[in-house]
Design a protein around this nucleic acid. Structure first.
Lengths: 253, 253
DNA sequence: GCGAATATTTGATCTACATCAGCGAGTCAA
DNA sequence: TTGACTCGCTGATGTAGATCAAATATTCGC
């Protein structure tokens, strides 16, 4: 769980900037010239950390900002008419939350911290304005939204076509890829969400998630210790999933 | 199935324009000034109609354009590693297809015509460029992508949480809403997709779709005659679904 | 560090929906 | 018109995973 800039993980509002953020290569500033990063930086507000369980925004609230996760994890979820929660996504550092609010000018989901989490608030009106002046920022925004569409559609395939084993394997590999991209280990990580939340997200009962993970462990695919996961047999896991588990199609990875 | 501008449905490349397209209020030109519609119009290429079964673009192909459906219907689908088709969406007139290709510069899905279908091709590089000059166009693009994200997440909820009855009811009501928005009847319409395609999209077996629809008919909810559907008891259908079946949350419809 | 609340695991049973199979109707090419 | 397909419907049967139940294990407030 080492992170290269661990000493500024909870740095103050004043010192943290895109320029010296280890995530800038994955986040919005990607492909921006230094001076443009500065301009972006100026519209971003660093917020105090959210404690576990705290809500970043509520379903139905007026939309005004998107948020980049800096540290920690968020989940977004809907409350269905029957009162149940349906989790629609988990968000790791560098990922953008809230894009679904642009259309109706209200957030259609709520976002809650799964652990202590810091975010950068990016007022969307400013971001949009700035994106007019910085074409590469606009392009990056289009790309991020496109990727989200793409990822969500992969999720639809998962929910519609895959069985419990494939769902859980896809989920773990997806996390693995995201951690790897961020410089963490691809094979050993900590789940910030509960079994219940995993099941909710994957369209499975808690018990099923638990059973599948136990079976994976028995078969030497993974090692489970509570929330700590080690992927022992990555090739076998990938075979189980079939595809990359991310948006990428085979042809152009 | 009457359409207000029926006499120019298959009009030539030269005469059809955004300006006199009945869909302009729903499509990209929404909220654009007349002169800006003209500019948009100039980058759009009207294509010859696709026949049923023809492919607009293939999964893996290089991305260069998004397409607005003018008449007819498209489906987008993935071929999974196990060789099955997974349908990820159906597209009605005025809806934009291909946005998921922006991120990786390749289409992650294929798009196929379900019936004779005409589309407007919008080269994305041009569109993006134009969007720098026309803020309201850029905003409309963001909104459309945001709405897609939102809709896809509603679909995830459907696939993850709903039973067969709720899935089919949601599907029919969703189509109903989309037809209504386009000036068609909300209660009587023709399904351009087969039962198999509906099942594939909803994560159900063909037989289940068929059984559910027969049962709905028996219970006086709908009237089914092959591909022709009439919704008899709209309130009851809505009760079955619970929510609006679209992205909208209750608070701000 | 203690005890209550909550999360996870495991086993037994149930069920919604898939799968398999067979039939009738519509479509199309020759 | 006929035969070959494809599509939709219905009945019988099988099963993956839900649900119910209960025993740990963990977390958290104090």
């Amino acid at each position: 769980m080492a992170i290269s800039n661990s000493n500024n993980r909870f740095s103050s509002k004043l010192t943290s900037q895109c320029q010296n953020c280890s995530l800038s290569a994955l986040c919005l500033p990607i492909a921006l010239a230094d001076e443009d990063v500065n301009r972006l930086d100026q519209i971003i507000e660093r917020k105090r950390p959210l404690k576990k369980g705290e809500i970043l925004f509520h379903q139905g609230e007026e939309f005004d900002s998107v948020f980049a996760v800096r540290t920690g994890t968020l989940k977004t979820y809907n409350i269905t008419n029957s009162g149940e929660e349906q989790i629609t996504g988990f968000y790791c550092p560098s990922e953008l939350v809230g894009l679904s609010g642009i259309d109706e000018n209200h957030y259609p989901v709520s976002a809650k911290a799964l652990e202590t989490t810091t975010v950068c608030e990016i007022p969307f009106a400013h971001l949009e304005q700035l994106s007019s002046q910085i074409p590469s920022l606009k392009h990056q925004l289009f790309r991020l939204m496109s990727r989200k569409i793409c990822d969500d559609q992969q999720m639809m395939v998962l929910l519609g076509k895959k069985n419990a084993d494939e769902k859980v394997a896809s989920f773990l590999l997806n996390l693995s890829h995201r951690f790897k991209k961020r410089g963490y280990s691809a094979t050993a990580f900590r789940l910030s969400m509960s079994r219940g939340e995993i099941g909710n997200y994957l369209g499975l009962a808690v018990e099923t998630v638990s059973r599948v993970m136990t079976r994976f462990q028995k078969n030497g695919l993974i090692d489970v210790d509570g929330k700590e996961i080690s992927i022992i047999n990555l090739p076998e896991m990938e075979k189980l999933v079939g595809s990359a588990g991310e948006c990428a199609t085979i042809e152009h990875v």
